[in-house]
Design a protein around this nucleic acid. Structure first.
Lengths: 203, 203
DNA sequence: GTCTATAGCAAGATAGAC
DNA sequence: GTCTATCTTGCTATAGAC
């Protein structure tokens, strides 16, 4: 179970494990969780499929590890933005700016969440997924409602609908190929200016 | 190959076939194409898996039929909007309004395109997918550029980036459960007002 | 920590009876 | 047009040698 008690190789082992998780995540993101085989993961790592089970007890454990790491990080972003106590518009801008980086770092996890949501969310083991998304929804809606009361957001805004639209919009660029055409800040700016101004020259 | 030469049952046969395609599409959309088994499709139709092969020669043929029908319809919407010869803002609004209905009717196909894009687009058989998306992209970008020249759209708009963002945004609501909370017109209006005005009270 | 080997099962697809 | 039955292949996971 841990073959690294001597010679201080604990770190090396963890890194190996973490590397395997990254490789698996990329495949899960590209082909879907269920469509990715343990053999493909092992191939990518240059070992045989059976050897994977020295590090993990199942394919689902790997998925679990990826998704938990992602949601912890993204929730931290949201909570920190709220804790600034800034006004709604600033909080939302902070959320967009900080969480976009987190989303980019966890590109694979987010793709898994989008593609295999029905699969994961249907299992008790992944119940934390629903909880996390509910907390995120509540934060957006609270900020919208406060902003509407303060008169800075349009009064006819449907908070829940707008949240769903915006959350999914924020999650889009992650679907795009890694290392392509646009940088993360570019995408964020495009999104924010769309969000606050629309595409018109003189609104 | 066609067991309906007598008694005028051709239509009934086609309807049966079409019904199977719909059932399969719903499963593909929910679970992903590769993760859906022919046995599940057959179960949904109340027959055995082997019997499916009387109607289709492979699982991929079913996917092919679904995707082709979808892209034909959506391309027709785009071409019709351009052919009005209206100004860019009107063309885009027409595209949004007409294609949203088409997207909703082909919910399953669009979900397949989003979830299993890497799988389908990698196969020669599905080469028409790339072609269709390229035509769609060209239409958006052309309208953006014309609108910028005419001074109605912001001059700093990155046409290609904005297109990618908007196209994917338009495709989002289809991911949402069928028959839920918001009607299609509601979603379209929320999208359009976001597009043209942003979320601010006084922009 | 990786290998060989394989168990146990589910996938897509086929052949022929009815 | 569906069923029975089955082939072939590929999947997750395990056991034990090295």
């Amino acid at each position: 179970m841990d073959g690294c008690r001597h010679n201080g190789a604990v770190t090396a082992t963890s890194e190996r494990r973490a590397h395997l998780v990254v490789l698996a995540g990329e495949l899960f993101a590209e082909k879907g969780f269920r469509a990715t085989t343990v053999r493909e993961i092992a191939d990518a790592a240059g070992i045989l499929s059976g050897s994977l089970y020295h590090h993990f007890d199942s394919k689902e454990s790997i998925g679990d590890e990826i998704l938990q790491g992602f949601l912890n990080d993204v929730l931290a972003d949201y909570r920190a933005a709220v804790d600034t106590g800034d006004d709604p518009r600033a909080v939302l801008e902070t959320i967009v700016r900080t969480s976009t980086g987190t989303l980019a770092r966890h590109r694979a996890a987010l793709a898994m969440l989008q593609n295999d949501w029905t699969y994961f969310s249907g299992q008790p083991r992944f119940g934390y997924l629903r909880k996390a998304l509910q907390e995120i929804e509540k934060i957006w809606i609270t900020q919208f409602e406060e902003g509407k009361r303060a008169g800075v957001f349009r009064a006819d805004l449907d908070a829940k609908l707008t949240y769903r639209l915006l959350r999914d919009i924020l999650w889009i660029p992650v679907h795009w190929q890694p290392g392509n055409q646009w940088s993360t800040p570019q995408i964020v700016d495009a999104f924010l200016s769309l969000l606050f101004h629309g595409i018109n020259e003189k609104p």
